[in-house]
Design a protein around this nucleic acid. Structure first.
Lengths: 225, 225
DNA sequence: CCTCGACGATCAGGATACGCATTCGCGGCT
DNA sequence: AGCCGCGAATGCGTATCCTGATCGTCGAGG
């Protein structure tokens, strides 16, 4: 899952980035409205954390522009504390959730998780496909109830596929969502990790669609839609 | 476990802080309502001790603001004398327990412990995982019934993990809950203490989740959810 | 049915980051 | 003064990651 943080205060921004990365997200950080808007428009994020109190362009404006451009990623808005009007305005402008500064990092993580979950249409914190279960809260994966040890990258890849169950996901899309901005696109890491996941969870979990990418289907309600 | 004390009277505040620290808590002290409210909103506490008789902003107001903001930590309210009305008002405003001044520090400790225990969903004062037992009342730890001597920090770390059994706890989270406000986040103390605990309790008590943190699982009811 | 090209899977190597153990100096407590 | 726990620094071992090369497979066209 790839996140964009638009936050002008460098200290807070860095800290957030670090925290999120420790929680398994790929994070890009932008320090002003213009750059933030550009990045949100050009890259594909799974969620955006947006500070409203930005210099130059206001956060609300940026949010409005994104929505006008048709960007659909969920946006979590940060506002200075107690500014009730900002909250209303933010939600009006298309924010999906709202958090007042100061906030607790754990709460931010929780809300972010909820946001991404909602965006992918899941209601539980457990993602399930066939015999495979992934709990986003505890970061655990089980196969037929047996715990399976996945490495960080394997987990990210599997998690992304599960969030887009049934959809064909291209290699490029995977790279863009698992790694942050600067990463060599001509690399076969994705294939390598797919192989590894298949070794651990069985060969049928991930289906290859030749020339297009990969797909993860739920045999519970499979062919014949 | 990290505690916030909001108490305007400096002598009592300091004394409480010292006492609690001697009992193994990481303690932040705030001397007025505004600052106290800010700290409770921005940091992650496991419990808060709140004096109602504050200058500037009233304790009840602070409590109300926290609850409105969605802060969930348990709050132990201190009131002057036996003012019944204050008690009622406090509980109404979202306090979890109540203690009239003057009080015995021992009683305060006991109630605090109960509060934290309840908040983490445990009903007993004993935390158990596998062969390890930790009694929060006596501060004793046993391995297969044999008493084990842990140092203060080792105890805090183990206790926090036990309170969050089954969840993956990041290094950051551990630092935030074991130490008080100002502490170097880039430090390897957590790893050091994990090592030391493993030496005393066996290598399998604490599981490492590479890249994410640590986790403590209960082998008593593991496989087959 | 066979061949060939393109794409994907797999393997092995080296680089790296991460966690672990150990050491050491500081400071508080006895 | 001596002991002990704490936390910083250091070096080591290894899981994990990425790269590049090779092998396998699918599918189209002859």
């Amino acid at each position: 899952m790839r996140i964009l943080i638009v936050e002008d205060e460098p200290t807070l921004g860095r800290q957030l980035k670090t925290t999120l990365e420790q929680n398994g997200y790929a994070v890009d950080l932008s320090v002003d409205g213009e750059d933030g808007h550009f990045m949100g428009s050009s890259e594909d994020y799974d969620a955006v954390i947006l500070d409203l109190g930005l210099p130059e362009i206001d956060g609300l404006t940026v949010l409005g522009m994104w929505r006008k451009e048709g960007r659909k990623f969920p946006v979590l808005v940060l506002t200075a504390r107690d500014s009730w009007s900002d909250k209303v305005a933010g939600l009006d402008a298309g924010a999906d959730d709202y958090l007042a500064k100061p906030f607790q990092t754990e709460e931010l993580i929780a809300r972010l998780r909820a946001l991404i979950r909602r965006a992918s249409g899941n209601s539980s914190s457990e993602l399930i496909a066939g015999d495979v279960r992934l709990d986003t809260r505890s970061g655990r994966v089980t196969l037929n109830g047996e715990p399976v040890k996945l490495t960080a990258q394997e987990y990210k890849l599997l998690s992304y596929l599960l969030h887009h169950k049934g959809k064909v996901v291209s290699r490029t899309e995977l790279i863009e969502h698992i790694y942050d901005q600067d990463f060599d696109r001509d690399s076969n890491t994705i294939e390598v990790f797919v192989t590894r996941i298949r070794k651990k969870l069985g060969p049928d979990v991930i289906t290859t669609i030749r020339g297009l990418g990969y797909s993860l289907d739920d045999p519970a309600q499979p062919k014949r839609g």
